[in-house]
């Protein structure tokens, strides 16, 4: 059986803009649409995709053992209990960085491609070895950035590097958008960012406190069927990636309807 596997790199350049959170949520959303999906943590030095998915305590083998042929791939893959279409391939230990080569990464991805429709690679921050390893095996990429000058600058650098590696298409996700600050022009606007980066916008993710809560619990927002703004944004992005046509949300209209106001009121009372 040949699957037309899509190997998607999720990268940003700058750290802390939301790569891992996006990977976890996209993984869950895509899996819930029925496609077998694998998420690969390429951040060997500082791995935490397993934490976000709440799978830390179920890891037995890692990519390292698979490469050393100490175990089979299916032994290392951790299947998500609530979303059986989603599997995580955990990264090895930080020492692995020294000997991991782009060829090793290609080998892992090749193995995953035989079984999954989507392979999402959570890329480490920076543009050094970890990034180069991750890039070597990817076919397309999603760049995550925040509406901040430094994040946009780093994203631009990464776009240049992706171009020289011949990765296409590269799409953009603008994370942590605060509609109010954009309106008052205290924050870079969507146009400011897309103007410089010149990438097709795959989606916006609104700033949302629920993301922090779900991260700490190890339950991605899209898994628990949350109706919070960020959860909607994530599933929209997954839908677009899947080929559905979903219009972009208009941040200026977010949070102004009566229902949203009421929900916010309820949340502030509870937490």
């Amino acid at each position: 059986m040949t699957l037309d596997t899509r190997v998607i790199l999720i990268c940003s350049g700058k750290g802390g803009v939301g790569k891992t959170t996006l990977t976890a949520n996209l993984g869950i959303s895509l899996a819930s649409k029925g496609s077998p999906t694998a998420v690969l943590d390429a951040d060997f030095g500082l791995r935490n995709l397993d934490l976000l998915l709440g799978l830390e305590n179920r890891i037995v083998y890692t990519a390292q053992e698979v490469l050393e042929e100490a175990c089979r791939l299916d032994q290392a893959l951790v299947k998500h209990k609530q979303e059986p279409n989603l599997s995580l391939l955990p990264a090895g230990n930080p020492r692995m960085l020294d000997w991991l080569k782009p060829e090793d990464m290609k080998k892992i991805i090749e193995m995953l491609s035989k079984e999954f429709k989507y392979v999402l690679i959570d890329c480490p921050a920076g543009v050094e070895d970890g990034f180069k390893n991750a890039v070597a095996a990817s076919k397309e990429a999603i760049i995550v950035t925040n509406p901040e000058v430094s994040a946009v600058r780093d994203a631009d650098r990464v776009i240049g590097l992706l171009n020289t590696h011949g990765i296409k298409p590269v799409q953009l996700v603008l994370n942590r958008v605060r509609p109010k600050m954009m309106e008052t022009q205290e924050m870079l606007s969507i146009e400011d960012v897309t103007d410089i980066l010149a990438l097709p916008l795959l989606g916006l993710v609104l700033e949302d406190e629920q993301v922090i809560v779900s991260t700490n619990r190890g339950e991605p927002l899209t898994l628990i069927g949350s109706k919070s703004p960020a959860a909607r944004c994530y599933s929209n992005i997954a839908g677009r990636l899947h080929g559905e046509e979903i219009p972009l949300i208009d941040p200026s209209k977010e949070g102004t309807s009566f229902r949203d106001k009421f929900r916010r009121l309820m949340q502030t009372k509870i937490f």
């Binding site: 600058r153 780093d154 631009d156 650098r157 776009i159 240049g160 171009n163 410089i196 010149a198």
Partner: peptide
């Protein structure tokens, strides 16, 4: 031809006509 992204440097020993943007950095 093509946009120059942050961190990229192009250096020539002549005139240059660049079709595309030169991004910050």
């Amino acid at each position: 031809q093509g946009t120059l992204h942050a961190g990229e440097i192009i250096e020539v020993e002549s005139d240059i006509l660049l079709i595309g943007d030169v991004n910050p950095g």
